[in-house]
Each structure stands twice: as C-alpha cells, then as structure tokens.
Design a protein around this nucleic acid. Sequence first.
DNA 1: TATTAATAAATAATCATTATCTTTAAAAAT
DNA 2: ATTTTTAAAGATAATGATTATTTATTAATA
Lengths: 144, 144
Amino acid sequence: MADPQARLAQMLAKLKARSFRITPQRLAVLQILAASRAHPGVEDIYAEVKKTFPTTSLATIYKTVALLKEINEVLEIRFFDSSRFDGNKPYPHPHILCLHCGAVLDPELPGVEALVAEAAARSGFQIVDHRLNFFGLCSDCQKT
Amino acid sequence: MADPQARLAQMLAKLKARSFRITPQRLAVLQILAASRAHPGVEDIYAEVKKTFPTTSLATIYKTVALLKEINEVLEIRFFDSSRFDGNKPYPHPHILCLHCGAVLDPELPGVEALVAEAAARSGFQIVDHRLNFFGLCSDCQKT
DNA sequence: TATTAATAAATAATCATTATCTTTAAAAAT
DNA sequence: ATTTTTAAAGATAATGATTATTTATTAATA
Ligand SMILES: [Mn+2]
Ligand SMILES: [Mn+2]
Ligand SMILES: [Zn+2]
Ligand SMILES: [Zn+2]
C-alpha cells in the first residue's frame, strides 16, 4: 500500500462511501498526502496547495487532515510543537526524526509487533494504538 | 533509582552543583515529582503545591519543570495536548496510557533495547532519544 | 544588616489548533 | 441545463497550553 495512485484511490473511495464531497482543494490535499513520503506538516501541505489554489485557507488544510484522520486515512505524528502526517501508511508504525535536518523516516522494524505484544502482556492493557518515535541524527547530518 | 528519597537527594544535588537556589516552592515541586508514580501534569503539580503554598503561580511550576528538564532530572512525555512528567525515571523509557481513566504506567519491556538498536542499525541514524507510547485500556477499565 | 542576583508572582504574549460565520460551489433533483 | 440544497471554503476570531516579561521577594554572600 505504498503506491500513491492506490492510496489516492483508497482515500477517494472512503470519502465517497461516506458521501463527503470531493472538492478541488480536498483533492489537492489528498494527492499531496498520497504522494509525499516526507511526512509533511500542515504548513507544508498549505504551501503546496497554494501553488494551484492560491486562495486556499489554512483552516481548510486543518479541516481536511482532521477529516482524513477520522476516517483513518492519515496518521498524525505529534512531534515537539506541531504535527506531521503520513498518508501512505495510515496505521500506527514507528518513526525516526533527525534533530538536525528535520527529516522523518519510516524505519522497517520487525521487532515492533513483539514489543506491542510484550507491552500488552506485561501491563494487562488492551492496546489499541501506539506512537514509537526515535530521535537522533541521520547519516547525512552525522557527517557535518 | 525508584526510591523517592534518593531521587529527591539526586535532584537537590544537581541543583546545588549548578548553584541553583533551593526555594520552598522548588522543593515542593521536587518532592512531588520524586514521590509521585502517576506521571503528573503541570496542573496536578500546581494543585498539590498550592496546598502548602497557596500563592504559588502556575508559571513557577512551568519554570521548575523546565529547569529540571534542562538538567535531565525529569522526563517530559507529551500526550495529546498536554505534557506529563516522570521524576522517578528521568531517562527515556516506554509508557502506556489508559484512554479511559488517564492512568500512565511504566511497563517493563526488556525488548526496548533491542528495538532501539534495530532502529539505529536499519536507519543509519545515531539515536539519542526516544518516546515509546502505547495507548489502550487498563485492566480495570476493560471491565466496564 | 546591607547588597546583589536569582527567583516568585502576576500577567501579557505567543502560536498551533479549533471554532464561528459568511460566502461559495458540489452534487442531487427537477 | 437550471435550480435547490447543503456541505465545504475562506476569513477571521477564539482557545488553551506554554512562554515571556515585568515587578516584587527573598536567598545567598559579604
Ligand atoms: Mn510514517
Ligand atoms: Mn515513566
Ligand atoms: Zn538529518
Ligand atoms: Zn483505565
């Protein structure tokens, strides 16, 4: 499910199924979220959408990502004082943030499932969600 | 390092070593953070401190926890729209939050070290920090 | 005890996010 | 295609956690 086309189609299908309207601004936001692998924040999305729709309001971006969150088509990751979004993998998965350049990646961690199971077993909790965030320096930024 | 007395002594030593003053308000905040296992938020600490020092300002609580963060004597855990603090284990460790009653626990997860290592190895990052948060229902809240 | 610098208290400012309100336009009905 | 309905866009105000600022206290040192 990492194909931008498929992701966009999936998002559109979900919106249509719940009879939400497909507006040009929404479509633009969906396309950005489906295509970007950079985990953009609202301001990033806003800047991008404005290229094609200059009158777009920031509130529209907020409302659209909130809607996508509600229908589980985007994952919100709260970093220090703002959020970033993943429209490619809209389910809980770990992230790693470079404290120097701000890059956010999706590391492949096969150990995650076992850790979630361990957390449930040891705590007695019924776990429904998680945010596993690592912070450090990416390989590029280590060189400087 | 889970003994409140030892933790308080450690915090005081660190403050004194860096010649920060030990005021009654600060001492009160330290005691609460050293003793509480509930991962209190600023408002919780504020309410508690006001019992002994009714004129205390909320800003004082914020400034004190910020100071403790700077000297690595408290860990901040950002949940949805506010932060909670751990003065017992002021180093990165996993947390589990009950979405129903708001309880925050420290699960013992031996698998964490391996996961951090895995994240570093697979991403090429030099990892310096992490926040591993699980969300769900505690055993009590599952019964209702 | 007086001096000085750090801290507390009070309160204003910040800023990401959310809410409100009016205008616009998507989609359905005619 | 036109009309109708109503969700959504745009503009802007409000919110609320946190931070900054300003003044008044007070701890530390001489
Ligand atoms: Mn991701
Ligand atoms: Mn903890
Ligand atoms: Zn980097
Ligand atoms: Zn609970």
